[in-house]
Design a protein around this nucleic acid. Structure first.
Lengths: 248, 248
DNA sequence: TCAGGTATGCTGGTCGGACCAGCAATCCAG
DNA sequence: CTGGATTGCTGGTCCGACCAGCATACCTGA
């Protein structure tokens, strides 16, 4: 006979569980409204303080949003990567991860995304990538360049047809930029970097177009390494090297 | 002249910001205690309800922990990937991904984890993997088998030294099991499946030990495909095939 | 009849006070 | 000196109250 350690479950947790389950299971859809706090406290049979603490937790997790004075009640939000973003940021601040780890994950993710996209992309998605590349070429040196760069990588991620790849890619890209933004300004040869990056992207796109996933994967990872390696401390670089040059 | 949209900042948010910043900046260390709620409401000049809502948010983010009756006050927690785990979990559920997508993501992730582990693993981690493999061999057919299987994959993920890989691996494994658990029972030839899985794991471990990351990556993905492909509907299989056999 | 402004009833945000069960240090009796 | 009861304080929950803000409905004036 085995017993489990008993944990007292707070009232507000039960409320969180029920609402969370209703949202995640799709029983209530994004955009829909919950009852007002005063209604919920009747439905759950708890006080308003308890309801409010539960709602706070759900709001912090980006599952709900409340506005004062809105007679329609708390709004159910669409799932967003904001919470994921925050968790990753916290871990980087706590030194559990550095640029090395985040970049490692990005290389892993985008490399595999190229591999998949080379086989799975539709021609419309290929056009999107080409359009983004054109935008990069046109706006070389401006802030529009990074926007187009993001659009390119996003199109690749979407071509995999996998929402998690899209979302994780998005988050990991943002965090990489946050981690290097202070060192990024005084790059006197940014223009050369961008030109080099553009050339890399062009090669990768060609490989994706040709359906050569392995090549696209290798090129894409190499491009990331070349672009960001200077910002990564030595002990972080060791984590990146197995991802480049390798057959995979 | 540009203006930004003005957002009314709630009192509890200001409290969250201050405590969060104190923790993340290291001004208060893990294990230390905050003042009691009744003290904090004086320090911040707000009511206890407001303090409590702030603490709830921080507790949900795994930054604090409170226990009723503890005279030492809320405890500051060490940064952990628990919050990351929750975010990833929510996203996978909310985007209602099918088995195809989840398995695609898992193959991508674990494949790359093998590739990295082959270069980065310490000999202690190699021993862990071998031990898990032994446990699988010993408990073939029992529920202990899956536990050892999990331990094996977890050891591989940890060998990458990347918390994101570890956490995403955990989540993706959990979700795969949830998605197939109803179909899993009536597998009459589970024993054969487990034996085959064991053989695959043995090969993969050998490749990791030899430092042949590309081989380990390929074998690992193939093993996942062989083990789970029967549960995946036809349209999902298309998303998996680019990941197997490929040079990468 | 219709337009525009106002009144009303709700919302969430905050406050204060109250009670309970539980933990730990302290104090007291053995 | 030891062991158990006492005593503060803790967090968890409840209640009642007030405020500013949003939408609707109403109502007044043209």
């Amino acid at each position: 006979m085995e017993f489990e350690p008993v944990t007292p479950v707070r009232a507000y947790e039960r409320v969180v569980e029920q609402i969370e389950e209703a949202v995640l299971s799709g029983r209530v859809l994004p955009g829909e409204r919950l009852s007002s706090e005063r209604d919920l406290m009747v439905q759950f049979g708890v006080s308003r303080s308890t309801v409010r603490e539960a709602l706070r937790v759900l709001q912090a997790a980006q599952i709900l949003r409340s506005r004062p004075g809105d007679p329609r009640g708390p709004e159910v939000l669409a799932a967003s990567p904001a919470a994921l973003h925050k968790s990753v940021r916290h871990l980087t601040r706590a030194r559990h991860m550095g640029l090395g780890e985040v970049l490692q994950f990005r290389m892993l993710l985008e490399g595999s995304a190229y591999l998949l996209a080379a086989s799975l992309r539709t021609s419309a998605q290929l056009d999107e990538m080409a359009a983004a590349l054109e935008a990069m070429r046109a706006d070389l040196g401006t802030s529009e360049f990074s926007r187009a760069d993001v659009a390119f990588h996003d199109a690749v991620a979407r071509a995999t047809g996998n929402p998690m790849i899209v979302v994780c890619g998005e988050v990991v890209r943002e965090v990489v930029l946050e981690l290097i933004e202070d060192k990024l300004v005084h790059a006197d040869d940014r223009h050369a970097l961008m030109r080099s990056s553009l050339a890399h992207h062009t090669e990768v796109l060609a490989a994706v177009r040709d359906g050569d996933g392995a090549l696209a994967c290798r090129l894409g990872r190499q491009a990331l390494y070349d672009y960001y390696a200077d910002y990564v401390p030595e002990e972080g670089l060791a984590k990146l090297r197995p991802l480049i040059g390798a057959e995979t």
